[in-house]
């Protein structure tokens, strides 16, 4: 994606200026500048209750790489990674179904995916809690099934089952992952759909006609072709999941804090903006490194001539 390809901006300066001015200016004014202030804070220290002295100290970063915080970073990445993986597995077939749905059905399916997400995140989370509670609908349904099968055993002349023990579905890491999947699924489905929609279907047909199964076709033909969409879906899911704080707060158990919870506490409860900034920027540095690494890799691929998107322009 990091196309080293494409035309040089010099060939069409006016067009480039028309296109580039808006986004770059906006980003500079309303993102880079405000964030630069916080970046400066990450090298500062608190003086009194509301004042911060930019002293150029690295103390905040030194604290941020203490094992305690690294461990929380690690755990957050694991939880977000698992969430993303599940979203991909669950979301891919759905995106595929939407892509190949009839034009009449397509918008409805898209709407169906999006609609729950027009309900407030907090309300959705509470709704999920009502389902997962010890006396919630999930346990009620399971209890009912349990009773049914117990009765069936009696009818068959077997011992009835023991009394139903409600599952503890809330306040643990399972609940956090489930909640994150619930919340982030459309972030995965939409980019996947956008990428799959204009796939060259003849390739798939060819693969099928040549005797490859659907699953194999999916893996060897569809997935590589949809790679840009998969990557953007993964990024768009993983990153917000990494930054989730409400879900672990409300669904998690006593050990389910994620890095965003810690960051949030620094900006609010602990009133330690310099340290909060340092923790936040740790996340951003990591992203930069990842992006740079990927750009590097693509450049290498490009050089060996097998890179994607070499560009039709010669």
């Amino acid at each position: 994606m990091t196309g080293a390809g494409g035309q040089s901006w010099r060939t069409q300066k006016r067009v480039f200026a028309t296109i580039a001015t808006g986004p770059i200016l906006w980003l500079l004014l309303f993102f880079i500048i405000p964030l630069a202030v916080l970046w400066a804070y990450s090298f500062g220290r608190n003086v009194g209750l509301t004042e911060i002295e930019i002293s150029g100290t690295f103390a905040n970063y030194a604290k941020a790489i203490e094992p305690l915080y690294l461990q929380i970073f690690g755990k957050s990445i694991a939880v977000a990674g698992l969430t993303t993986f599940i979203c991909l597995i669950v979301g891919f077939p759905v995106a595929l179904a939407i892509t190949f749905a009839t034009p009449k059905w397509k918008p409805w399916l898209l709407l169906g995916i999006m609609l729950p997400f027009w309900t407030n995140l907090l309300i959705r989370t509470y709704a999920l809690m009502a389902v997962l509670r010890t006396e919630g609908y999930a346990n009620q349904s399971l209890g009912w099934l349990w009773q049914l099968s117990s009765n069936a055993r009696v009818v068959l002349g077997l011992q009835p089952l023991d009394a139903f023990e409600p599952l503890h579905l809330l306040y643990n890491n399972f609940a956090v992952v489930l909640g994150l999947v619930y919340v982030h699924l459309p972030f995965m489905v939409l980019p996947l759909y956008a990428a799959l929609d204009r796939l060259d279907r003849s390739l798939i047909e060819a693969s099928l006609d040549l005797g490859a199964g659907h699953f194999r076709t999916l893996l060897t033909i569809v997935a590589p072709l949809a790679a840009p969409g998969i990557i953007s879906g993964v990024v768009i899911t993983f990153v917000p999941a990494l930054g989730a704080y409400l879900t672990p707060d409300l669904l998690g158990g006593t050990d389910s804090q994620m890095i965003a919870n810690v960051i949030e506490r620094q900006f609010k409860r602990a009133n330690d903006w310099p340290f909060g900034s340092a923790l936040s920027f740790m996340l951003m540095y990591a992203t930069f490194i990842m992006i740079a690494w990927q750009a590097q890799r693509e450049r290498k691929l490009m050089r060996t001539g097998i890179g994607p998107d070499v560009g039709a322009r010669a």
Binding site: V37, N46, G48, E51, K268, A270, N271
Partner: peptide
């Protein structure tokens, strides 16, 4: 819930001075 802060007696004025003509937002009171 509170704050990581030393009870400093450093006043607003001296803070501003120490920052020099700080860029926007770097000093704020």
């Amino acid at each position: 819930k509170m704050s990581l802060l030393r009870d400093s007696i450093m006043g607003r004025r001296s803070l501003l001075k120490s920052l020099g003509a700080a860029a926007i937002g770097i000093s704020f009171t």
